[in-house]
Nucleic acid binder design. Structure first.
Length: 611
RNA sequence: GGUCUGGUAGCUCAGUCGGAUUAGAGCAACAGCCUUCUAAGCUGUGGGUCAUGGGUUCGAGUCCCAUCCGGAUCACCA
């Protein structure tokens, strides 16, 4: 039983005995004692003063007195300051807690069983006409981390991606390639497929704008020019052919999409994300109409005179929403209804989470209502995991103005910088092969990038300064990774000492920590607060799952690493003469390493054995 | 204009269920610490009207109302 639970239980009994009123569990508020006071756990007694009709300090005294009598093995001393009862917990309790944490490699995680809720997470959702940029990076990292967090909270998770592989934007790239490509391929040019296609998309835009400018110069007004430019007309014609299943257009479309997917796969691999099921819009965009017709028959929607179909959501405080155009074709919302249908056919999901930027908040509000009306049981409380935009120091990311940060460039830069960084510390990596050094650079560079993005509350807009972002000091991924690497170094040395393989060589945790109560070392404040931090991992994971918020795990990891760094500085773990203290500190280090690894793992951040 | 969302140090961000006379980190600036388990580290100094004004109560950065400022959205685009 956890220390907190024991105390909570005892306090409820004591207060009832003293003041004759039952105490709901929530009323017992325990928190970590502030460093300037003696003790480790503090009970807030303000809520009880109404029952006791006594001053806060006196109430605290009374409760403390009884608590010390009732739980002598837990509470060794206490003091009351105003309405705060500070409790000193005996060392054995802390050691026992550490032992518990250390012996459970999955500490903080809820096991997943066959009966666990089935959660589907959709993320990434790229367009196939240009490479991934920084905004996608945020999406992918958040989606992956969220999937890990949901799983850690005892859910079965299916990760999906819906690829937007059709539409006018792809036709633009295709047309430009036909016109100016000279048969260029990823192989012939050495370019990554998605970049190649992206270049043609840009080329189209350049020529298109020239055409528009010329038409305007000839006296046409701009809106009309945009419609009338020969290039855009050609692109539209191509889209029509595509929809008519023209074999030539389809073949080209297929070939170019393959190039893009090969490029995306590379980026996904670098980011360390993957999917269980990929949906393609070209295969799903016609779905949904059926559902809308069904809703129409049930009277959920209505048809206007021009033939278009609408949902009236004014009673929900929203507007009216178009579902089918007057020509019978579907819109974005219709498609999302369609994919929802398909997904439910494929998986009996209990919950659906969409990782999509906050510019679509309204869309998902509407989608939720519509799916609910159409009878999807998870529609009503589908989660739109809505994240903020990434801004650059001089404004937003705009591809037109060339202010995008390309994902592949960014990854390469981060890794190269990490490599440079460790090269500057020659002694660090002596005895390590070039391959190993590269692997460490990859882990550290990616860790820096991922942590930088994930530490920020997802729903807030964040600022990304390309120059300052590559900072490996302070509240960063590498700081946490570095802490881990140092712990591993201690463990390696310790394991070497243990001769003759009494321990499996690769186990992080020392084999045994069993210290009999009378053997318990007296613990320093710093050691106790580390154990308390470790214990907090469980609650942090739960909270992350409840709030759909990976950032609190990132900040937790930083807190834990900071605390450990101070501990590391104050104590010589391996040199400690006292055998009991030494065992305890090694075990504590091992547990910290394990929790850091697990926490960072939830974020999709690897930790290196050395760096 | 309607709806949603944010505003905390020069900059980037934390801040749990409302808890402690003094609201935390990091960056940037300054001053220390490598014969000692990895200095990508540690210690210290300076830097704040928690946008503003009310309210709720033992107690508010946190909850409620109003105002100001920023962002998103309100398409027969996706």
């Amino acid at each position: 039983m956890k220390i907190e639970n024991k105390i909570t239980e005892a306090v409820r009994q004591i207060v009832e005995e003293l003041y004759g009123q039952p105490v709901p569990e929530k009323m017992v508020q325990l928190q970590q004692t502030r460093p300037e006071f003696e003790g480790q756990i503090t009970l807030v007694v303000f809520p009880f003063t109404k029952m006791s009709h006594k001053a806060p300090e006196q109430t605290a005294q009374e409760i403390g007195q009884r608590l010390a009598e009732k739980l002598p093995e837990v509470v060794s001393r206490f003091n009351a300051v105003k309405g705060f009862l500070n409790l000193c917990i005996s060392s054995q309790q802390w050691v026992a807690l550490l032992e518990e944490i250390q012996q459970n490699p999955r500490f903080g995680f809820t096991p997943v069983t066959a009966d666990s809720p089935l959660v589907m997470i959709e993320y990434s959702s790229p367009n196939t006409n240009k490479p991934l940029h920084l905004g996608h990076v945020r999406n992918n990292l958040l989606g992956w981390a969220l999937a890990q967090v949901m799983e850690a909270n005892g859910n079965r998770v299916v990760k999906t991606n819906i690829v937007n592989d059709r539409g006018i934007h792809i036709c633009k790239s295709m047309l430009a390639w036909l016109k100016w490509g000279n048969g260029e391929t990823p192989e012939s040019s050495g370019k990554k497929g998605d970049h190649l296609i992206g270049d043609y998309y840009v080329a189209f835009d350049k020529h298109y704008r020239e055409e528009v400018r010329e038409l305007v110069a000839q006296g046409m007004d701009e809106e009309q020019a945009k419609q009338e430019a020969p290039l855009i007309k050609e692109a539209h014609a191509m889209l029509v052919k595509w929809e008519q299943n023209d074999s030539e257009v389809r073949a080209l479309w297929r070939k170019m999409n393959e190039w893009v997917y090969a490029g995306f796969d590379e980026t996904y691999r670098a980011l360390g994300v993957s999917f269980d099921k990929i949906y393609y819009e070209s295969e799903t965009y016609l779905e949904g109409k059926e559902k809308v017709e069904e809703g129409l028959q049930k009277g959920l929607f209505y048809r206007r005179d021009d033939g278009s179909v609408w949902a009236d959501l004014t009673s929900e405080g929203l507007d009216e929403k178009l579902l089918l155009r007057s020509d019978g074709t579907s819109v974005y919302m219709t498609q999302d209804i369609g994919t929802a249908k398909l997904r439910f056919q494929d998986f009996p999901i209990d919950k659906m989470i969409y990782v999509v930027g906050n510019e679509q908040n309204y869309h998902f509000q509407v989608l939720s209502i519509l799916l609910d009306k159409l009878g999807f049981k998870w529609g009503k409380d589908l989660v739109h995991f809505s994240y903020g935009m990434v801004e650059l120091p001089n404004g937003k990311m705009k591809s037109r103005e060339g202010t995008v940060v390309d994902a592949d460039d960014l990854i390469a830069t981060m890794v190269a910088d990490a490599r440079q960084m460790s090269a500057d510390k020659v002694n660090r990596l002596e005895g390590i092969t070039e391959e190993e050094a590269q692997e460490i650079a990859r882990i550290v560079g990616m860790g820096a990038l991922k942590y930088f993005i994930l530490k920020v509350d997802a729903r807030k807009n964040m600022l990304f300064n390309p120059e300052e972002s590559i900072d490996f000091n302070g509240n960063t991924g590498p700081f946490i990774q570095y802490t881990y690497a140092r712990i591993r170094s201690i463990m390696r040395k310790w394991e070497k000492e243990q001769e003759a393989g009494s321990c499996p060589g690769n186990s992080l945790a020392p084999c045994t920590l069993h210290l009999a109560p009378e053997d318990c070392p007296s613990l320093a404040d710093r050691e106790i607060s580390l154990i308390q931090k470790l214990q907090g991992f469980e609650a942090t994971v739960k909270q992350a799952g409840q709030d759909y918020n990976p950032s609190c795990i990132a900040n937790y990891c930083y807190d834990l690493a900071s605390e450990y760094n101070r501990f590391y500085h104050d104590f010589s773990v391996l040199r400690e003469e006292d055998e009991k203290k030494r065992t305890f500190r090694i075990a504590l280090s091992a547990a910290v390493g394990q929790v850091i690894k697990n926490g960072m793992g939830l974020l999709g951040i690897e930790v290196p054995e050395r760096m």
